[in-house]
Design a protein around this nucleic acid. Structure first.
Length: 271
DNA sequence: AGTGCGGCCTGTCCGC
DNA sequence: TGCGGACAGGCCGCAC
C-alpha cells in the first residue's frame, strides 16, 4: 500500500473516527520496523487527546498536545479501525486504543513502515524537512520541475520518484504519468523542455487525483480482505502491461528496469 | 551536490 | 509435493 492516494485514502478513512478522541493506551507487539518503535507510547499518550491526522507526502502525522506520531506505511503497511477485542494476528504490530471503544491497528507484513515519535515540529523532523512539494498543490508545476531539473543527469523517471523533488510519485504512478505525458522514462531530466514538463506535471496531478477519487490503487500483494483488487488497477495503461499492446498505438510495450524498478513504456509514444 | 547502490522484510510465484 | 531462489516495493544512508 505504498503510494500517495492510498495514504490519503487511509487518512480520510481514519481521521473522523480518531480526531478529538482520547487515547487510553498503546500496545506495541513488534518494535523492529524500518526504525525502532518507541516502547513507552502508553506513558507518552495515555489520557491525551489525539487532535488531528495530517498527511505530508506518504507520511501520516497523528498529533496530540504532547507530541506527534509520524507513521509511514512502507510497502505493505495498513492502518485501520478495529474493535479492541479483535485478536491480533501475526503482523499486527501496534494498537492505539481509544476511550470511545475503538482502536487503530497498524499491520505491516514486510515491516518497511515506521512509527516514530517527536515532540518537536514534525515538519522539521529529519525525514520530513527536505521533502519536495505536494503534487496536488500549485507549488508543483511544470516550471518548478524544469528549474529543478537543471544540471540533473538522472533519468526523468528517477527524478520524479525522488521525494526531495516531489512527494508521492511511486513506481506505478511514475510509469503511468510518463506514458500520459509521452516522455521516455530514460530521458535525462535536464534534456526535457519546459513545455514537456508542463505536460508531465499535469499528468501527475491528473493521475494522482483520479486515483484518490477511486480510493487508491492496489498492488499484486495488496488484495484486500475480500480478495478484490483496487479499482484503479483497471485504469493502468502501462504498469504491469509489459509485452502487451499500447492502448494508444498498439505497439508492444517494453519492460525494462530503472534503478531496480520495473519500468514499462511505449517505444513509439514515449520519446 | 548529485548519483548509484545496498539493505531492510515477507509473501508469492516459478522451476526443478 | 517440497524446496530454493527470484522478485516486488519505498526510501534511507552511505560511498564516491
Amino acid at each position: 500500500m505504498p503510494e500517495l492516494p492510498e495514504v490519503e485514502t487511509t487518512r480520510r478513512g481514519i481521521a473522523p473516527h480518531i480526531e478529538q478522541q482520547t487515547i487510553t493506551r498503546v500496545i506495541v507487539r513488534q518494535t523492529q520496523l524500518r526504525w525502532p518503535v518507541p516502547t513507552d507510547l502508553t506513558r507518552k499518550l495515555s489520557q491525551q487527546m489525539l487532535q488531528r491526522v495530517v498527511r505530508r507526502g506518504k507520511y501520516l502525522i497523528l498529533s496530540s498536545t504532547q507530541g506527534h506520531m509520524i507513521i509511514h506505511l512502507g510497502m505493505s503497511g495498513r492502518l485501520y479501525l478495529i474493535e479492541p477485542t479483535q485478536i491480533a494476528q501475526k503482523h499486527d504490530h501496534i494498537d492505539i486504543i481509544f476511550a470511545h471503544g475503538k482502536a487503530l491497528r497498524f499491520t505491516d507484513p514486510r515491516r518497511f513502515g515506521c512509527l516514530l515519535w517527536t515532540q518537536e515540529d514534525p515538519y522539521q523532523h529529519t525525514l520530513l524537512k527536505d521533502l519536495g512539494p505536494e503534487p496536488l498543490t500549485d507549488d508543483f508545476n511544470g516550471n518548478y520541475l524544469y528549474q529543478q531539473a537543471r544540471n540533473r543527469t538522472v533519468d526523468v523517471k528517477q527524478f520524479i520518484m525522488n521525494s526531495h523533488v516531489v512527494v508521492g510519485v511511486g513506481n506505478i504512478y511514475a510509469n503511468e504519468a510518463l506514458f500520459k505525458a509521452g516522455i521516455h522514462p530514460q530521458r535525462s531530466a535536464k534534456h526535457i523542455s519546459l513545455e514537456r514538463y508542463e505536460y508531465l506535471a499535469s499528468a501527475i496531478k491528473h493521475i494522482l487525483s483520479a486515483a484518490i477519487q477511486q480510493g487508491g490503487t492496489t498492488l499484486r500483494d495488496f488484495i484486500s480482505g475480500d480478495g478484490k483488487p483496487g479499482y484503479f488497477q483497471q485504469h493502468l495503461s502501462v504498469y504491469s502491461r509489459g509485452d502487451q499492446a499500447c492502448l494508444n498505438c498498439t505497439t508492444t510495450l517494453r519492460e525494462i528496469r530503472i534503478n531496480q524498478r520495473s519500468t514499462v513504456y511505449c517505444p513509439q509514444c514515449q520519446r
